[in-house]
């Protein structure tokens, strides 16, 4: 996966039972982003695997002032990559984590 300069991780342990995830995103390499942002702050948010989309969350972050609009795609991609990994992990593990 292309390095966006952003890091997204689970903010809480995934118990695999909930469709809602707690994720945390922060800037790892500010040089890879086009806009100005704070690289010492992490943003924690919930992401519902069934109803939310990475683009929607990225848009909300841009509108909330965390990122510049030009970085919206990078933010969405970072979230999507992490969510994809989490979904694949859940598929591999039998019921219950």
């Amino acid at each position: 996966a292309e390095d966006t300069g952003l890091r997204v991780e689970l903010a809480e342990e995934d118990d695999c039972s909930n469709s809602s995830l707690a994720l945390r995103l922060w800037v790892e390499d500010p040089k890879k982003l086009k806009g100005k942002n704070k690289d010492n702050e992490a943003i924690e948010f919930s992401f519902n695997l069934e109803t939310d989309t990475p683009e929607e969350v990225a848009y909300e972050m841009v509108k909330s002032g965390f990122f510049h609009e030009s970085d919206s795609k990078a933010v969405a991609k970072s979230i999507r990559d992490r969510v994809t990994v989490i979904k694949k992990t859940r598929e591999k593990i039998p019921a219950g984590c």
């Binding site: 890091r7 922060w26 010492n40 702050e41 992490a42 943003i43 924690e44 948010f45 965390f66």
Partner: peptide, 27 residues
Amino acid sequence: SSLTQVVHSAGRRFIVSPVPESRLQES
């Protein structure tokens, strides 16, 4: 560490906190 809460108009809550030093070093 200080926490700041930002609520988007769509209702999603963003909680801002400092990135722990250890995570910055890892990356």
